[in-house]
Structure formats: C-alpha cells, structure tokens
Design a protein around this nucleic acid. Structure first.
Length: 509
RNA sequence: GGGAGCAUAGCUCAGUCGGUAGAGCAACGCCCUUUUAAGGCGUCGGUCGUUGGUUCGAACCCAACUGCUCUCACCA
C-alpha cells in the first residue's frame, strides 16, 4: 500500500473521530509520570496518567498491549474491552494507530510474565500521525534518511536516542562542573567583523543594515578574553562556530566548541583541572571511565600522559625540530628523512611542524594524552615559555587520533601579541589562507590590561562521539547539513530565489 | 577537488544467466484476554534514483546526471 494511500486512510480516521466529537489534536494532557518514571513504579498504584507515542502494539481481540515512548523511556499499557466498554475499545482498535500520541489513565500491575504495565481505565488521543511508521525491528538504517529525518531515527533506534541523551547529559554535567568551579557563562558575538581566535577559513556574509562584510565566528576566543579584561575572571561559553573547510567524519562546518578562560592559572593548572573535570563528568554520564570504541577501549582513568610535541616528533621521525631554526633547514631535514608533505614549499616553519605532527605523531595516539610544548609560531595567541622562548605554554588533549582540546597559558602581553599578529598578517599576505589577520580592536582591549590566564577549547561533538562510540560526528549532531534533495521543496525555493538572494558567498569568492 | 562504492514497496532487505518484481514489517479485512519482533487466515501496495544508450527484450550491460557513504588531499 502506497504511502499516499496510507495517508488517506488516516485522514479518513480523523474524520470519523471528529464525527464522534473527538478532537484529534487536543490542547493538553495532564500526566503524573513520564514513561521513564512510570516504568519504575510499583504495581497497584491507581490514577496513574502517562502519555507518549505508541511505538508498538500487540492486539489479542479483547485485550491489547502497546508501548508509549519518548526519548527518555518507554512504558507498556494495556486496554481491555471488559474494562473500558465495547465502544471505547473498538474506537481505540479501529481509529488509533502505531505512531499516534495517546494519554492513558489507569492503574499499574504486573502481567503474567512480570512486566509492569498501566492498565487503562480510559484513553485519550493526543495527536494523530498521517505517515506510516518505519519498520519496527530494524530501525532506520539508510544514513540519508537518518540525517534528513532524524526524528524517525530517534523514534526507531534506541542507540540513537542514547547517543543524544549522552550528549545532553554531558553538556549539562560540564556546565554544572564549571559553575561549581566558579565559572560564569557568557554569550559573545557569532557575527564578527574580523574572524579570529583560530587558524581557519571563515564563512563570509553581508550585513545589510550596516552594508559591510561580516564573518561567522571561527572561535569565541578573543571575545571571551575581552570578558576577562572586563573582570569576569572565569568565563565559559558553549559556542557554535563555523569553519569553511573540508567535511569528513571528524570535521563539520558548523560545530560546537566549549571554551573557558581562568584568570591566575597557567597551562599546568589548566591541565590538572581538565583531567579532573573530564574524569568526573565522564564517570557521571557514562557510569565508567572505560569507554568502548570501535578502535579499542578508551581508558580515561589516568593519569593521562603529558608528552612534548617536539620529543614525540623526534621519536617518530628522528628529526630534531629545534636544530632547524628556520623553514629551509626544516624542509631539508624532511627530505633527508624521506618524509613528503604536500604544499611544504608554501608553508611557514610553524605550519610545517604542525603538518609533521599531524602526519606522524597524532594518528598513533589512541588513549587520552596531553601533547605539550608546541613551537611558538604555531600558537599566535599563546604565551611564550619563560625558559624556552621558542616554545609556547600550550597543550592539546588527543584521543583516538582526534584533537579534542586545545589549551594554553594565554598571551597577555600586548606588545608581544602585536608582534605575533604582525607575523601572522605577513604570512597571510604571502598566501597562507589560514594565518590570522591583524586585529586592532582586540589589541586595544589587551592594552587595557589582563591578568595571567589559561584557557581552553574543546570540541563537544568530538568528545561526545568518542564517548558513545560514534565514528562520525554527524551521529552526535541532531540535524547535520546535507545538500537538498533534487526536486525537493527546499531546492525549489532556492531555485526560485535564484540570483536574487546571494546571501552567503564563500570566503574564497 | 581526485578515487571507490551504494540507490528495488512507507521501512528492512532478496532478486540466479538480460526474459516486464519477491519476502518480512507496516497498512486494510477477519479470528484471538497476558503479549513485548505476539500468533493465524486473506488482501492491497512498484515509472527498480533520473535521463539517455545497447538489445527482439534491461532492476540487471554502458554513459551522463542527482543524492548518500567511504577514502585521498585540505582542515579542529
């Protein structure tokens, strides 16, 4: 039977309901328990009111069992013809379908095989659905449908529901942990006149009222530091950020980053806090510090190793980066070690060290590991090490080859900062697209004075994916961006808008 | 951007050698008071992603296009 025919049948059912004076879309229902709560009740409790979507039904003629579900849980209910009357029972059988929302009032009992159930004394339709439900024992497996119509994925797949519950719980626990540690939550601009705070290509758009180009933020960093100048001595933001770059299982263009900044800390304090915060939050959300993953169990129990980037590179490749003070000598060292890096001739020394690390060291790191002591020219916003001015007081947390956290003792010296931004601007002018641009407004804020700070950015999507064993970030993002389907309403609307609405153009345009 | 793979009923999937399509679930009709993938009997449901080509004949072979997935390059 076609989907269209099924839809017509359901519309006919709605008409029959209306003919009997039943409102198929009533305005409210007062529940006493969620499905999750109800499933934990004792037997023998009367006047229990539960509601949810019917996700399965087992019909025995004069007795029917069905399950009400929401994202958090499920409760079995039953209706008996002898209990609610023939007419009401027949209406339920004939006019209510799997997929509809209903409310049930009744008492709890255990079935013959011990399943806690709400025996309905009455039922009320709370919302009729017109589309057929997906098949009930395989869940949606077509990845395209799972992403485009995530609600179907969530209705049918408990594993998907549990991933998004974990994401919710993880964010909630992080927020609570930071608040307990004296951090204030703030919100900073998404539309910025200068993209800053990271090395990345931004999305560019146009501000109509001010008639000027603006960028979607690639990081909240410089605004959060302005908050520190203002006297918020510990701040954080759950920031949606946008980077107009490649898309693959570990990179999305629109993703969520938690950043925080703590005054009077250095990066060592920050590492200590990070390890404690994450261990607490992970144990709280998953119930364990050992997390299963396709690539092997991840053990968060720690202590997490703290390893120097340059030492790791030397171990892996034999190249002593520090004995290559300029980009030319580093390039020849790479040639000597027979390591090829695409585009090496266009990179500065910092970018080249970074590539060397990403090619040789990072993929081999599986367990939670702090990588420290990055070269200072990789870290234009990080503080120089007092003993070794060529390296920065910086760390990254790497798990399963993914960079999950990037952190440093922040650069708070406005003179040094100006010099480093000038170097970045020079690289940018020479064709390094990802190098930063000069940001006088940020320098102005810095010149008003900053305390010592250490801060941090964590890819929420990445850590959540790692915690729930997802190998693609899209599996932990509710509605990942996909191209519109050909002939879809969305695409038709875009085609209709045509040249009239070039709202967004690529940064490279 | 390069390469590879996938697309069949609302969903999950079969489809042999090229001979105009099949199951389960869902839906519809009937039976059934303890199931939880309930069960039994019956019925409906398809422009085989789109467009061309080859062929007497295409779900199947070829090409292009669209979408998705993986991968390389780039990036967090």
């Amino acid at each position: 039977m076609s989907e269209e025919r099924i839809r017509e049948i359901k519309i006919e059912k709605i008409q029959k309901l209306r003919d009997q004076g039943v409102q198929p879309y009533p305005e409210r229902w007062e529940r006493t328990h969620t499905p999750e709560e109800a499933a934990r009740l004792e037997a023998g409790l009367a006047a229990v009111r539960v509601c949810g979507r019917i996700v399965s039904r087992r019909d025995f003629g004069k007795l029917t069992f069905f399950d009400l579900q929401d994202v958090n849980g499920r409760i079995q209910c039953s209706l008996q013809r002898d209990g609610i009357g023939k007419e009401s029972y027949t209406d339920f059988i004939k006019l209510v379908d799997v997929g509809d929302f209903v409310g049930i009032e009744g008492e709890t009992y255990h079935t013959k095989i011990g399943q806690l159930t709400v025996r309905g004394a009455s039922w009320q339709l709370l919302g009729k659905m017109l589309r057929p439900m997906p098949e009930k024992f395989h869940a949606i497996s077509d990845r395209e449908i799972r992403y485009r119509r995530r609600y179907l994925d969530l209705i049918t797949d408990e594993k998907s529901r549990s991933r998004f519950r974990l994401r919710r719980d993880f964010i909630r626990a992080l927020r609570h942990g930071l608040e307990q540690a004296g951090f204030d939550e703030v919100e900073t601009p998404v539309l910025q006149t200068k993209p800053s705070g990271a090395l990345a290509t931004p999305f560019k758009t146009h501000h109509a009222a001010l008639d000027m180009p603006v960028y979607l933020r690639i990081a909240p960093e410089t605004y959060l530091k302005r908050c520190v100048v203002a006297g918020f001595d510990r701040v954080f933001e759950f920031a949606r950020v946008f980077r107009n770059e490649g898309m693959d299982p570990s990179h999305l263009q629109d993703f969520t980053m938690l950043e925080y900044y703590a005054s009077y800390w250095n990066y060592i304090d920050n590492m200590d806090f990070t390890e404690k915060l994450l261990r607490d939050v992970i144990e709280q959300c998953t119930g364990s510090l050992q997390v299963p993953h396709a690539a092997g169990e991840i053990d968060f129990s720690g202590p997490w190793p703290r390893l120097s980037l340059l030492e790791l590179i030397e171990q892996k490749t034999g190249i002593a980066v520090e004995s290559c003070p300029d980009v030319e000598s580093l390039r020849s060292a790479l040639e000597g070690a027979d390591i090829h890096i695409d585009g090496a001739s266009k990179m500065g020394r910092g970018a080249l060290v970074d590539q060397l690390y990403k090619k040789t060291v990072r993929p081999s790191i599986t367990q939670p590991t702090f990588i420290t002591s990055h070269p200072v020219d990789l870290s234009p916003l990080a503080r120089r090490n007092d003993e070794k001015p060529t390296i920065s007081d910086r760390f990254q947390l790497v798990i399963h080859g993914w960079e999950v956290i990037n952190a440093y003792s922040e650069l708070v010296d406005p003179i040094d900062q100006r010099q480093r931004l000038e170097e970045q601007a020079q690289l940018n002018a020479e064709g390094d697209d990802e190098a930063m641009v000069m940001d006088e407004d940020y320098l102005l804020a810095m010149e008003h004075g900053m305390p010592p700070i250490s801060g941090w950015g964590m890819g929420i999507d990445r850590i959540v994916a790692l915690l729930c064993g997802a190998e693609n970030l899209r599996d932990v993002v509710l509605f990942p961006l996909l191209k519109p389907e050909e002939g879809s309403a969305v695409e038709d609307a875009i085609l209709e808008a045509g040249e009239e609405a070039p709202a967004i153009e690529g940064a490279g345009a």
